[in-house]
Design a protein around this nucleic acid. Structure first.
Length: 302
DNA sequence: AAGATGTTCAACCGCGGGCCC
DNA sequence: TGGGCCCGCGGTTGAACATCT
């Protein structure tokens, strides 16, 4: 235990009284009502004044990660996942900075997503998650799949045609596919061909083609038009009404992903940047796609 | 049905930076 | 300038839940 923690806790007597672990409804209520009246900040003082036997740190965390009314709950959308992948490739583990670009999502949530989903994929593929190989793999395969998923969500009627595409290995695929789907790997549920994937990732990391929309020279943020984080948060206590976050029903509007500032329409992304025209064969990786099999990423993990 | 194993995520910890006196 | 305090960040832990055997 560092001196810092001592400082945070105050005297030993106070330390012995301090509660830890999961918050109770009563504690939540105390915190919510205190902040409703006095606002947030000055957390140590707040904890004492509100009558909470918690550290200021604990109160801050509970508020910012759980109780704050503009927090969005539920699974991350493909759009959000895409943004996280892109921003992480740019900034690394700067969770707080990344979270600023995902309204309603906390740094903790993004960090958890990265550790439990993304790093899991890396582990399964035996690739170091921070490595260039992994970043390339994310750009070349996960991101296109998320785009595909976004398209499916946006245009459900086109799903069947897309999921049947056999990426890059048949004339049939290219002739029958639509403009927006011809080069996206298919989604059939099979286990990843790991050896091939690793070879492919190795190969791809040595490749730098300006025509490759997911190569290092391609800035994904061009597509995303990353907006500034919101300057202010909505006043949740308007009219003295507070919406208590109960499970996933806290935000009824699940279609509002808070991504209004982003141009994430998959159709426009693909058309604008001509992603379906991207020629993996020309770029030197046709062999790789032939060897990939149907699935590199477990879509369930998204 | 029950124990083992895996996954998720809320909460904690330690550290460093900024501010104030 | 140095020390104390507060705050925020990133890493880690562990309880609860889910899935597997």
């Amino acid at each position: 235990m560092s001196t810092n923690t001592k400082r945070d806790l105050g005297s030993n007597e106070e330390e012995s009284e301090l509660r830890r672990g999961p918050w109770t409804l009563e504690e939540d209520s105390l915190l919510i009502h205190y902040i409703a009246r006095h606002g947030e900040g000055r957390w140590n003082m707040l904890a004492k004044s509100a009558g909470l036997k918690r550290t200021g740190k604990s109160c801050r965390l509970r508020w910012l990660n759980y109780l704050k009314p503009d927090i969005k709950r539920g699974n991350l959308t493909p759009q959000e996942q895409l943004l996280i992948l892109e921003l992480h490739s740019k900034w690394g583990n700067r969770w707080s900075k990344i979270a600023q670009h995902l309204p309603g999502r906390t740094d903790n949530e993004i960090k958890n997503y990265w550790r439990t989903r993304v790093q899991k994929q890396a582990r399964q593929l035996n690739i170091e998650s921070g490595s260039k190989r992994f970043i390339d793999a994310v750009k070349c395969f996960w991101m296109p799949r998320l785009l595909q998923k976004m398209e499916q969500d946006t245009y459900p009627s086109s799903c069947s045609s897309m999921t049947n595409i056999n990426f890059g290995n048949s004339a049939e695929a290219s002739s029958s596919s639509t403009k927006t789907s011809s080069n996206i790997p298919s989604l059939s549920p099979s286990s990843p061909p790991q050896r091939e994937f690793i070879d492919a990732a190795n190969h791809f990391s040595t490749m730098s083609s300006p025509s490759n929309p997911f190569s290092d020279s391609f800035q994904f943020s061009q597509l995303l038009e990353i907006s500034e984080p919101p300057k202010s948060t909505p006043n949740v206590f308007e009219n003295n009404v507070y919406s208590y976050p109960i499970q996933d029903s806290y935000y009824a509007d699940t279609n509002n992903y808070g991504m209004e500032g982003l141009n994430l329409d998959p159709m426009s992304i693909m058309e604008t940047y001509d992603i379906p025209q991207f020629d993996f064969q020309t770029a030197g990786s046709g062999w790789m796609l032939d060897n990939m099999g149907d699935t590199l990423w477990n879509m369930d993990a998204m």
